[in-house]
Design a protein around this nucleic acid. Structure first.
Lengths: 305, 305
DNA sequence: AGCATGCATAAGGAGATTCTATGCATGCGC
DNA sequence: GCGCATGCATAGAATCTCCTTATGCATGCT
């Protein structure tokens, strides 16, 4: 197993082709190089082996006994390698691993991913919903959907939409507590997770002074999704990204009374290593994703704005 | 079979070692290169494949799913190659093909070759006795014994002994035709193959004038051996190389009455391609051969001179 | 005889691969 | 917690391999 004593593998590849064709010229042809290069490599191998592999007959070459011994085994070995790499390529191209924020996964990706599968039946998608920022060199991840500024070195980041947010609540809440006309009216209601910095940012953006976060600052529930559930249940007002709750809004489960605010520069991004931007499955996913996003803007964002 | 699409084979070799060790550093060690080179080759292969093969964990590397798929197959293929080349090397080293002049084969090599086999039981000798000058690049020949000047480009030629010759006959001949004192006495007898140039050369060297070759000039029987048979049979006088007939002389079957002459510069040589002078079986044969020659000079050439 | 075919060889250069010298991340020990 | 050690990645420079072009040589065919 260890410490194999192999001749330069390049010479082996050339030998195999020459043995198959019984012609240096045709082997060179197949390998896309010149006859001189084949001659050179064969000679190299023969010297390394200490034995001639071809008899140079007048207008053709012929294998020596040693050459005849070697040819089938090398062909087989190269075939095996080719098969293995072809399988690996298929395997690598057939599974797309997506790291995605849980909220994004639940509200945006999950309802749409089926269409990607329809379009690319040969690509299996493995979705990994996690709040941890994926590390492409450490985790087996092909693409990631994450929020931030998009300034990740070595990554190509396609901006999706801003990380914006706005208060939302259930219509049931209005029934109970009366109508809400101005942003400051919200202060009378129960804010779900008032420690979320988004509340402060939003009130500031709306010009409502005097909001002081209750609870621990930075004590978010950690997942927008849970806050949304609470709001839908009529428990209070949650600050949410409306793009994620189009269905709930359309179904009358949530109301968005005011415009959104956004953290400066923060976007959702579709990201992947720049070096892999032309890998077919990645390109396919990105193309589909951006396309999906564009058509979504036409049909859904119009009523929301 | 044709047109395989393989990554650079060097990267495959590096990958296999790295996968086996699960460490770039140790793989570099095994392959006799630096860790940086391994890293470079792996990256090359990953880019070529469009998929990562290793996960870079903090203090070790780990195979990805694709890598795990690939590793066993590449190991197997490389093992197969190693086995094939090892077998080829054994095969090439185990058979020594000797092209040799028929006379030399019969009188010098045949009686001694057994001792070579005793000394090197792992080397099989295939003797090809032919008058045709072996062409090393065209015929499957490792070493050749031939006569000439030794000025063959690309060949290493070990001089053995001069191509010398002298008249020889059976003692029976003297019984019938009377004693032979001087070279010119031979002219009374039947010269076997008088067209052989050696007769002319020998008489010239002995200072016997007036010898005119009978028969067609250059109409040699072609083989000293046949002439020797005729001489032993008492048919006439043959011009022979005495070194080849030591046994016959010793046994009293042939008599050598006069000194030898030789063609200027002509020697018997043991020859092989210079590039192959260090191939073990060739080196073994040459060493044995020259040794045999040297010890032969001590024991046998002494009485002849 | 002349031409065409196929391999060998020489010289030259482009490119690949390696090495050295770093940087970086991180686990471990004190 | 703070250094230290380990292991991989990267940059830049120096080789060194390998290929191509251009030719020669041997030989079979017309």
């Amino acid at each position: 197993m260890r410490h194999r004593d192999l001749p330069p593998l390049a010479t082996i590849r050339v030998f195999e082709a020459a043995a198959r064709h019984l012609s240096f010229t045709r082997a060179a042809d197949e390998l896309g190089m010149t006859q001189a290069a084949v001659s050179y490599q064969i000679k190299l191998l023969e010297e390394r082996l200490g034995a001639p592999l071809f008899l140079r007959r007048t207008r053709a070459v012929e294998l020596t006994a040693t050459g005849r011994l070697l040819a089938p085994a090398t062909s087989e070995a190269l075939d095996q390698l080719a098969a293995a790499f072809s399988a690996a390529k298929a395997d690598a191209g057939g599974v797309l691993s997506v790291s995605v924020l849980p909220t994004f996964a639940a509200h945006w990706l999950a309802p749409r991913i089926g269409r990607f599968q329809m379009k690319h039946p040969d690509i299996a998608v493995r979705t990994r919903a996690t709040r941890d920022v994926a590390n492409f060199s450490r985790d087996d991840v092909d693409v990631a959907i994450r929020s931030g500024l998009g300034d990740w070195p070595g990554l190509e980041a396609n901006p999706l939409f801003p990380v914006d947010f706005t208060p939302m609540y259930s219509p049931k809440l209005v029934e109970r507590y009366g109508s809400i006309e101005r942003p400051c009216d919200l202060l009378r209601l129960l804010l779900i997770d008032p420690g979320d910095r988004w509340w402060k940012l939003w009130f500031d953006a709306m010009g409502v002074p005097g909001f002081e976060p209750g609870g621990h600052p930075d004590a978010r529930m950690g997942d927008q999704h849970l806050e949304a559930r609470a709001a839908i249940g009529g428990y209070g007002v949650a600050i949410l990204t409306p793009a994620f709750y189009r269905e709930e809004i359309a179904a009358g489960l949530l109301v968005q009374p005011f415009p959104t605010a956004s953290e400066a520069g923060q976007f959702y991004f579709l990201a992947y290593p720049t070096t892999r931007r032309n890998v077919p499955k990645i390109r396919a996913f990105r193309d589909w994703f951006l396309d999906e996003l564009r058509s979504g803007e036409e049909t859904c964002l119009a009523p929301a704005s």
